[in-house]
Computed example of a mutant assay.
Amino acid sequence: MKTAIVALLLAASSPLGPAREAYQSGDLPRARTALEALLQPPRLSHPQEEAEAHLLLAATLHAQEDLPRAEHEAVEGLALDPDAKLDPLVYPPDFIAFLERVLAQRHDRIVQRAARLRPPVLLPGPTTSITAPVLVESRPASRGWYLVPFGVGHLVHGQRSKGTALAVGQGTTFAVSAVSLGVALSLRGPDGRYSAQDAPTARAFNVSYLVGAYAFAALYAYGVLDGLLSSPPPPHGNGPG
């Protein structure tokens, strides 16, 4: 079971994973280097990921007290995702307050930057003949994303609130289970058994490991079933006329 969970966790990783881990562990120089490598030139294919990278770099620069550069990155991130919501479990309160000030004080600049980032709309010239439009089928994201844990499937399909809740819940139960298992194993003696003194503590951590593992499995099963059963139907107009 542990091997399967680790495999699913690796499948859910993204190019931002190392930078997130470095920032959360306090290794700001490594986080800054990783984020600048992703953004200069841009190497992220999704606007939301690029927005998160800019905001994460802004938080890193803010922690390093490079406020002018932090404000620049915050403007870039908010221009890509004006509705970005920061996770208070990841970002400190002083940076969240800093981002709110940037949003209020640099609103016009953010709007102008967002307008520049939008792809241009090509209109036919005066002599251009207008032909029948070509219909391009819009393909929805695969339902297979719901098999990835930590709310990835819901986030990919635009269900941000539910995806965030699943990510926090599954991440917490996974961490509790993994830590409890590690502590319980470390209490074993060379013969693979617990001493009389350590037995009660080991028993408590074994129970915590099982509870965390079952809770993670339950949340994972709920996320898969909820995604597969409540996924929106295909757009109208693709069936037979």
Rank of each mutant, 00 (worst) to 15 (best):
Q105V: 12
S186Q: 15
G182H: 09
L185M: 12
V121Y: 07
R139V: 13
A184T: 04
P92L: 02
P119W: 08
V168M: 05
S129N: 09
L123Q: 14
I96A: 13
L122C: 10
R139M: 03
G158E: 04
Q170A: 09
H154E: 02
A115C: 07
G182I: 01
A132D: 07
G125P: 00
R139Y: 01
L187N: 15
P92A: 06
Q105P: 00
A178C: 04
L99A: 13
R160S: 04
D108W: 07
H107V: 10
V176L: 14
S129R: 11
Q170D: 05
H157L: 10
P133I: 10
L99E: 03
L147S: 13
P93Q: 15
V176C: 12
H154M: 11
T131P: 04
V102A: 05
A132Y: 12
P140T: 06
T131S: 15
G158W: 07
V134W: 05
H107L: 15
P120C: 02
P93G: 09
T173V: 04
R188Y: 08
V152T: 03
V179D: 12
A97G: 12
L187P: 05
W145F: 11
V176Y: 10
L135G: 13
A175R: 14
G151W: 00
A165R: 05
Q105S: 14
A104H: 13
G151S: 01
P140N: 13
A115E: 13
K162L: 10
L181E: 08
P119S: 15
A178N: 05
S177Y: 00
R109K: 12
A97W: 13
H107P: 02
G158C: 01
T127V: 07
E137Y: 05
G151Y: 00
D108Q: 11
L155Y: 02
R101G: 13
K162P: 02
R101L: 11
L135N: 09
S177L: 05
G171S: 11
P124Y: 06
E137C: 06
P133E: 07
L147Q: 09
F174P: 00
A167I: 06
I110C: 09
P140H: 01
G144E: 02
V152S: 04
A167V: 07
L166V: 04
L135F: 13
P92V: 00
R188C: 15
W145P: 02
R143Q: 05
R143C: 06
Q105Y: 07
P92D: 06
E100M: 11
V183I: 14
R160A: 03
V183Y: 12
F150N: 08
G171A: 02
G169V: 00
G153Q: 03
A184F: 03
I96F: 08
L187F: 05
D108S: 14
A178Q: 05
